[in-house]
Design a protein around this nucleic acid. Structure first.
Lengths: 191, 191
DNA sequence: TTATAATTAGTACTAGGTGTTAGCATCTAG
DNA sequence: CTAGATGCTAACACCTAGTACTAATTATAA
């Protein structure tokens, strides 16, 4: 019975990790044991009750989605000299990769550089009008991407920004961004 | 007393919209009425109880986050002729925009086109190596973006894809993508 | 065989409700 | 001025998915 209990508990952990919305009753039925056994297992594993689990998921993912949509910059800002240069850092997580190859999806690299380029521009409204980007080598989860963006040229309506993203000192991405500075109701350029 | 009730109910709606994690008791205290009054208000407004609200938030945002990270393609695929052309559609929602200007962030447009370009390539592993993109005009929430991507040229290790995104028939974005086809352990190109 | 571990069962209690009935105060129309 | 409608509060029984605890039963290994 020792091995059986061990197996059930690790399976329970696994099941609740992938689906936290199961009641003790449902779990008891699923495992063919009594509700009390499930409760004891949860106690031993330190897994909170259904309602607490649901509350946790709700709070966490609520906050996560809020921050995702409210986030003006992709990554964390490390340095910013408005109109001159900026540095941001992005840690590559499992939700940024291709499931098959475990390689980071290009648009996340683009997003980090693009949002930094836009943030760099010292104007009330700045929109990306165009970009030329190169993906130098694949990036994998766990890497820390440091993006450095510099203003190269300025005209009345355009700012040219060059960005370089490195991981542990190696360049993984470069981009040239043309940012449109919208004064009033200018129709050119886009975010 | 009629106006008071109306005001309280619309305020209640607003409060619970922005924070669904409040108990009737907390709400009663906040509004200076009895718990029963809050319950009646909820009934009339069709607002479910705390636990149901939490469950909803949990399920919704859980699913949303899951789908965000599992999604291979940004947008919905409408047509796909592997190695030839593809069409995808993306509805612009509030979480894709700049808070200030309500204009869609560039990387979402990039992501739609880029993921379609990659999906188009008939190879086990395809990674974006480079891209040249133009943002023609600002895009706002509610618009439906139709992205059409076509393979223009093919070499042994590279596929050149051109993408055009339109909204209600007007071009809003164009992009030229160079996709690297990785055969074995080729180190060039990136997603 | 017996000590120990694992499981099950039962009871009392909890939060955050629902559903219902009832008692008042207040307003409004006839 | 009064009857009926509207709004607010209270009280009670019930629900779910638990916790906390005690006790009994079953399995197993020494």
């Amino acid at each position: 019975m020792r091995a059986k209990k061990q197996a059930r508990q690790s399976e329970l952990q696994r099941v609740l990790d992938s689906n936290p919305f199961l009641t003790d009753e449902a779990l008891a039925a699923q495992f063919g044991v009594s509700v009390q056994t499930i409760r004891l297992d949860r106690m031993e594993l330190g897994i909170p009750e259904l309602r607490e689990r649901v509350k946790l998921v709700a709070h966490e993912s609520y906050a996560q989605i809020r921050s995702l949509s409210e986030q003006e910059l992709i990554g964390q800002l490390w340095e910013l000299e408005l109109g001159v240069k900026g540095v941001s850092v992005l840690d590559v997580t499992m939700d940024m990769i291709f499931a098959k190859t475990k390689i980071m999806r290009g648009h996340h690299l683009f997003a980090q550089a693009n949002s930094l380029a836009v943030a760099l521009v010292d104007a009330p409204v700045a929109l990306t009008a165009g970009a030329e980007v190169k993906f130098i080598r694949p990036v994998y989860p766990g890497e820390r991407l440091v993006c450095t963006a510099e203003v190269k040229e300025k005209t009345e309506s355009r700012v040219y920004v060059e960005a370089v993203t490195t991981s542990a000192g190696n360049v993984v991405f470069t981009g040239k961004f043309t940012i449109a500075v919208v004064e009033q109701n200018n129709k050119e350029g886009e975010a």
